[in-house]
């Protein structure tokens, strides 16, 4: 029984949050955050060396979360491992009780802290999705029969702000055709863009968890606007955070207000508390979750 998968049927509003594995062998601080949100989220995304910054592998950390009682959603990117390693990790994940996988291409190593690393990208996200779907049927990429087929609930990601959006939607449909059953989006910061996205994906039969990121400071807004986001964070948000006494607190408040506002409008949310994971319990509380 996969509780995260079930949440889509049983709950009105599905909530997932991201907790990155530690940048070292000390798992205690990350696990403490996880403990505080136990029972409050339906799934926890465990990132895979996100932005090309080396951390503990998501396989091990997902296992620890599973032991704690969470439903880990193990992120897998195609940047660092070839098809042998990726399939092998999937079998390992299955053995450790990990039931949910979220697949993405991954940032290029040149953007991370090991820019000299060899970029692998043996498979792309669509091909990996398809490969995992085949593993579920008991066949590996070489066409060989497996001794025991893993069970996974497969997810993917979408960037609703990509231009031209038609190209992103073509890829979204391919991911669905390849076997993706749910999607987590890049963060939204305002209603207008979200309404537009809902309109764009109307008729596409899948499950979306809308990305939410609390903005911890004006500095972060400037960084996101310049380096990460195709659609800029509205000026009104920046001004509100700028004028506040405690920027992080205000950022959390804004995100919580946004969550309250879109509840009922979307199937669920995926919270990415970039750099302020320790505020996650507080943010959930603010949002009434």
């Amino acid at each position: 029984m996969n509780l995260f998968k079930e949440a889509f049927d049983k709950k009105d509003f599905v909530v997932t949050a991201e907790i990155p594995p530690p940048k070292g062998s000390n798992v205690i601080p990350s696990l403490e955050i996880a403990k505080k949100v136990l029972g409050k989220v339906d799934g926890v995304n465990v990132t895979d060396n996100q932005r090309g910054i080396m951390r503990m592998c998501p396989l091990a950390f997902s296992h620890l979360l599973k032991e704690m009682g969470h439903n880990p959603i193990m992120q897998v990117c195609t940047r660092d491992r070839n098809r042998l390693a990726l399939q092998s990790d999937m079998l390992g994940a299955s053995a450790l009780g990990i039931e949910n996988i979220c697949i993405m291409t991954g940032d290029h190593p040149k953007l991370g802290n090991h820019p000299d690393a060899k970029p692998v990208f043996d498979l792309d996200s669509v091909q990996l999705t398809k490969a995992i779907k085949e593993l579920k049927k008991g066949v590996n990429m070489a066409g060989k029969k497996l001794d025991g087929a893993p069970e996974f609930f497969i997810g993917g990601v979408i960037n609703p702000f990509f231009e031209p959006v038609e190209l992103e939607l073509i890829k979204l449909r391919k991911k669905i055709a390849a076997g993706a059953e749910f999607f987590q989006t890049q963060p939204f910061f305002e209603r207008e863009s979200l309404d537009k996205f809902i309109e764009q994906v109307k008729g596409i039969d899948t499950k979306f968890l809308i990305g939410i990121s609390p903005l911890k400071s004006v500095k972060m807004i400037d960084f996101m606007n310049e380096k990460v986001l195709n659609k800029k964070i509205p000026d009104a948000i920046k001004k509100r955070i700028e004028a506040s006494e405690n920027q992080t607190e205000e950022g959390i408040k804004i995100a919580a207000e946004f969550i309250r506002a879109i509840r009922g409008l979307v199937k669920g949310i995926h919270i990415m508390p970039i750099g302020i994971e320790s505020y996650l319990p507080h943010m959930l509380e603010e949002a009434g979750l």
Partner: peptide, 19 residues
């Protein structure tokens, strides 16, 4: 830059490669 065969990675900004 990632040799993707099934569509963009989604990381491009203003039509330029993320790398």
């Amino acid at each position: 830059s990632k040799s993707l065969l099934n569509g963009p990675c989604g990381g491009s900004m203003q039509g330029k490669c993320e790398v």
